[in-house]
């Protein structure tokens, strides 16, 4: 019988530390599957973020570096410039990419660095206990917006993907979502394209993934997926942005 579902070579066969219903495990696996399918495991270099996914290298079976919070794209820029023959990607959360690292993000994109960025948007700071993220929705309760995010005090959810799309150095940006299996398959296509773009030397590519964080949304895993579909996607519409 033909085997149609196998464990990716680029993913260690271990269980993760993520909470039930978290999207990181799905994102890790998709990246690993794509790396296998593209045959690049032996030349890929991943940058793990500060945040829940800091130990992504405990799950990925290829070369990885940590980066200081927000600095992943500065680190990745240098690795890619020093070793253009390698495939370099960053894996970053919303706080990392769109708050503390906004400057690094914008300038790496503006330089058109030949990099692949996987941007996990779960609208909250997970590792530190559920504080407001730049992408937290208006009205969303977090430990630092106890009455819900208010535009007068906290500003608006930051649409960094749309901002980055304005830059001529950016080749490809798409927003996808893990709210259902079709969404996961679409996310896989987008991530694969973002890696292929680097292989083909086309420039900066970023995939934003709307990803569930049931623990700090105060929802069950199933409710979290529905919340992405019914609430989050209204603020962060899916599709190709550039």
């Amino acid at each position: 019988m033909e085997k149609i579902f196998v464990h990716p070579e680029a993913l260690y066969d271990v269980s993760t530390h993520y909470c039930p219903g978290c999207g990181h495990g799905i994102a890790h696996r998709l990246i690993a599957e794509i790396i296998d399918e593209l045959g690049i495991r032996e030349k890929v270099i991943g940058i793990a973020p500060v945040g829940c996914a800091v130990v992504a290298y405990d799950y990925w079976d290829f070369d990885c570096s940590e980066a200081a919070h927000g600095r992943a794209l500065a680190v990745a820029t240098a690795i890619k410039r020093a070793r253009p023959q390698n495939i370099v990607f960053t894996y970053q959360g919303d706080g990392d990419l769109a708050a503390i690292g906004t400057n690094e993000t914008i300038h790496a994109a503006n330089r058109g660095e030949s990099l692949t960025v996987i941007f996990i948007n779960n609208a909250v700071y997970g590792m530190t206990g559920g504080q407001m993220a730049p992408t937290t929705l208006l009205g969303q309760k977090t430990s630092t917006t106890i009455n819900g995010r208010e535009q007068e005090k906290h500003g608006y959810p930051l649409k960094i993907s749309e901002m980055l799309a304005l830059l001529p150095g950016v080749h490809y940006i798409e927003r996808v979502s893990f709210h259902n299996p079709q969404g996961v398959l679409r996310a896989k296509q987008a991530i694969k394209l973002a890696f292929k773009n680097q292989i083909n030397g086309l420039g900066f590519s970023l995939v934003e993934i709307l990803s569930p964080c049931p623990t700090y949304w105060g929802l069950t895993p199933k409710e979290s997926l529905d919340w992405i579909r019914d609430v989050m996607q209204k603020e962060f519409p899916l599709g190709k942005i550039k």
Partner: peptide, 17 residues
């Protein structure tokens, strides 16, 4: 680099490579 922070983190990345 766009900042001193980026510059030193680029050194980190280059050295790592």
């Amino acid at each position: 680099a766009e900042s001193e922070l980026a510059a030193i983190n680029m050194v980190y990345g280059a050295s790592a490579a």
